[in-house]
Design a protein around this nucleic acid. Structure first.
Lengths: 349, 349
DNA sequence: CGCCTACCTGCGAACGTTTGCAAGCCGGCC
DNA sequence: GGCCGGCTTGCAAACGTTCGCAGGTAGGCG
């Protein structure tokens, strides 16, 4: 072993070397190793090539292949912030789906700063991503439109813009919020508030709409100020908005939060107002994020399958990447939700 | 706009096109755009090239560059499971450090199944990663040794193997466990147990060692069976091991858990034994993972900076990748720990 | 026995960069 | 005025694949 081999990475085996070893042309090796073209080569040489490749421990150089084929088998995943416990499972679902078809993912973070999207997109594009999964959609998302216009296939996940041409995998937010309200109504609550997320997000909108619809259906009033929305889906905003709502409507006995993080903020606001949950005020979250069952009190929330959401989105994207047809019918998947009963809700006093 | 342009990604601008536009040779454009070689080209043509690149909105094709330079500016990150709330912040620290130097990361999951490491490594290698950050090290890790032997620079994070030649960024686990014990002793506890992680992990070992050392220093006994270790760092294993410990030593008034997940398991075991935390038994965790402050009770735990750990590991790796010297002195960074006082610890009855 | 076809393989260019080498040009110095 | 050296640029080969094209061989059929 030479010194350089010991200290530096030993050069990987190339197609050419396998070809020499098997006594054939590199192109033949390429064909033999690619399932798509394998039937072009005779059984005899196929064996020889396979044996040679095995013996030399050949691995195809993805970079060279990508350059030649103009496809990187890589997709970009744009999320606001991996710290939000919603995303790890989603990412895992994405990667598992991608792994099955030899794709990989490159993650980019926007930190909720939407202007970062186009910036991060540029570097993803430079790295040759074949498509994009975007979890940062806003209702009127010009950036998303321009992505789509640039010709890179996009799939939206969790949230979606009003541009119906862009496929999306979301949950039935409207229905989820309805279920939350129905649960509270069933417990006997009548003065219910909504501490919602930003109305620039499809989730914030749909959940607020669902809340209103369910209240109406239950014959309950929604006085002004009992439905408010935060500027972000964070604990802090949940606390702030919940505080305002409580100030304006001290008589509410239950609140439907925009998501679990905001529900935690509600916990804080209630504590600050010397109210107990669920004894004085019930709280319902949305998402059933990791550890929702461990909070104090354990959070009653609207559950959906984060992993499945990621998995489905990745599958939609891959299908889109592989289909020759330029414009497949835009898919808009909506995952089911279900109520998870824990200890943050109880009958009103 | 032609139909194909509308339906497919419009072909990105190439170096050649910029060259034509600026009236120079492609090589000159390459030199002008690369900071390393920029001083080779005259101020005059530099301006022309820059203008042309700007005008055409040129982006360098990373794949082509990688093929030519044999460096992908990509590193692999191998973690057991992104669902463990320890990792998101760590990943973020890694990516932020990488982003500053134009690197990107590719994530791989082992799910604690160590045999997956080499398998996933193969695909990372195929994708041309320049180096690896590995969070799955075991005490005697043959796989890790073989990675290092294959010539791909590796940095260990969070855990480390006994192979001192491989750089690592970990926490001072020993000291952390000591601090935990000291805190409990100060509260007045004397019968303290340790519900530890696997002894095949450096973290499990060092924390157990720190526990023993601190007990000895405090003049306290460590009867057999009061220090046990689980097969994995999970809630379930925490519950199981804590159950056994409690059965053998019903008189313990405090337990130091191997990490926060195991601490949650301890909560479960205590509840199952009709014991209250901290009234009957105090619990200290390790890691201060997300939401540790939200548990019931809020978890007293040993804190360290997950983000910083990722950041530091990425910097070590990048430095290693950029240095020409084949074997830089192996760095073994150890981050500081500190006690975060919450509500899971209290004086013994 | 000859021709056509089908099957297999080789050839070489191309994907978009980077980089060693050489050439051209200009200025300065003897 | 000639030569030398430095600065700037162009040339062309490479990085490791894939793929259109063509050629060669063998087999079948008339």
């Amino acid at each position: 072993m030479t010194e350089s081999a010991a200290s530096r990475a030993l050069a990987p085996v190339t197609l050419r070397q396998v070809a020499a070893h098997a006594g054939v042309h590199p192109a033949t090796v390429s064909r033999a190793l690619n399932p798509e073209t394998q039937q072009m080569v005779s059984a005899d040489t196929l064996q020889r090539v396979l044996a040679a490749a095995q013996e030399l421990n050949y691995r195809t150089n993805t970079i060279a292949r990508s350059l030649r084929t103009q496809r990187s088998l890589t997709v970009g995943v744009v999320i606001p912030d991996i710290t939000n416990p919603l995303f790890p499972r989603m990412l895992r679902g994405i990667d598992d789906a991608l792994e099955r078809v030899q794709y990989a993912s490159l993650i980019a973070y926007t930190d909720g700063r939407d202007e970062r999207l186009l910036d991060r997109f540029e570097v993803l594009r430079q790295r040759g991503v074949d498509g994009l999964i975007v979890a940062t959609a806003r209702h009127a998302d010009r950036a998303l439109d321009s992505l789509e216009a640039s010709g890179v296939p996009v799939v939206q996940i969790n949230r979606r813009s009003q541009n119906r041409a862009i496929p999306s995998v979301t949950v039935d937010d409207r229905r989820g919020a309805q279920i939350a309200v129905e649960h509270l109504v069933e417990l006997g609550h009548r003065r219910i508030a909504h501490v919602g997320g930003p109305q620039s997000h499809s989730t914030g909108r749909a959940r607020a709409a669902g809340f209103r619809a369910a209240m109406r259906r239950a014959g309950l009033e929604v006085p002004p100020g009992s439905v408010q929305s935060g500027r972000a889906v964070t604990i802090e905003e949940g606390a702030r908005v919940c505080g305002t709502v409580l100030a304006e409507h001290p008589d509410v006995t239950a609140v439907v939060a925009g998501n679990d993080l905001m529900a935690l903020g509600c916990y804080d606001a209630l504590r600050a107002a010397d109210l107990r949950c669920p004894a004085d005020v019930s709280v319902v979250g949305f998402n059933d994020m990791t550890f929702a069952d461990r909070f104090d009190p354990p959070l009653t929330t609207i559950h959906f399958d984060h992993y499945e959401m990621g998995h489905a989105a990745a599958e939609v994207l891959v299908r889109r990447l592989r289909s020759a047809s330029p414009v497949p019918a835009a898919v808009r998947l909506e995952l089911d939700t279900q109520l998870v009963l824990r200890a943050s809700t109880a009958p009103p006093r």
